[in-house]
Amino acid sequence: MRELIDLIYFLFPLFIATTVPLSIVALGGLFSERSGVVNIALEGIMIMGGFIGIIAMRALIENTELNLQIIAFIGLFTGATFGMLYALAHAFASITMKSNQIISATALNMFAPAMSVFIARTFWNTSNLNLMGNYTISKVPILGDIPIVGQLFFTNAYLSTYIGIIIFIVATAVLYKTRLGLRIRSCGENPHAADSLGVNIYRVRYIGVLISGALAGMGGVIFVLSFATRFSGSVAGFGFLALAVLIFGQWHPKKIIFAALFFATMRVIADTYSVIPGLNMIVMPREIYRMLPYIATLVVLSFASKRSRAPRAVGEPYDPSKR
């Protein structure tokens, strides 16, 4: 029994650390796609946001005496800002220039790792940027003392976990309860309807893509904070995994969270199955667990796409003359 509890205490932080960036980035993708713009550039945006966020944090650590949590917060904010700026390139190509959204996103996905490695090697002579410090919050006052829940959620926790929860609540509220949300959804389903009612499609779609950029950029920083002590021009396919989460979650915030939980479970198992009692008896290569989320997404796609909940107008540049 004691062992089981220890195991849970061991696995739980990993589980959260995987779920949070996945769901934040997927929620970002949600805003872009619900507004009608396919965003397979999430991977590239995560890299760009993560890279610049880490640079900012390194600079702060070297030059200031700030509390690590404040530095982390600034890192997240910087990542979000630059993720948004980077996503602007995708928005410009796919909305203003009516380009093929997949091609534009592919360019973003190639540019970000190249640029970050280029800069890292040029200025620091290495493609791995180390990040010093332990960014967990050892214990949240009062809440951390609650038995079990306190230990699971409020000790050795990341700031990003709480930010993630706030983002989920705000994102859901924005999408379903506000004017912007109504307009975003209408642009993804039937932009001609929205246009005829004076909604500025281009503006709404820009907002959608920029939100996705901010969230993906922040997700990039969270990824580095929670998984690596260094940044090497990659987020290990997390952006594409988040895209799978978005699809598996059928473009719906709550389902996205469940999809992220499921994907995170698979990933945690893949990384730790050798130490989990029970699972270590079944000899299954870790690659199987790694690929399960993608296979699951394919299965869901092949059984749902006849009645897919994908926004109807997603991927089509808005052309007012086509009715």
Binding site: A89, A93, M97, K98, S99, N100, I103, S104, T106, A107, L108, M110, F111, P113, A114, M115, V117, F118, R121, T122
Partner: peptide, 21 residues
């Protein structure tokens, strides 16, 4: 650093996306 080549390629793709324009 040779990554400049990848940067160039990425920019070329991006501008190819704008090919209509």
């Amino acid at each position: 650093v040779p990554q400049i080549i990848e940067i160039i390629i990425a920019v070329i793709i991006y501008f190819s996306a704008l090919s209509l324009f």
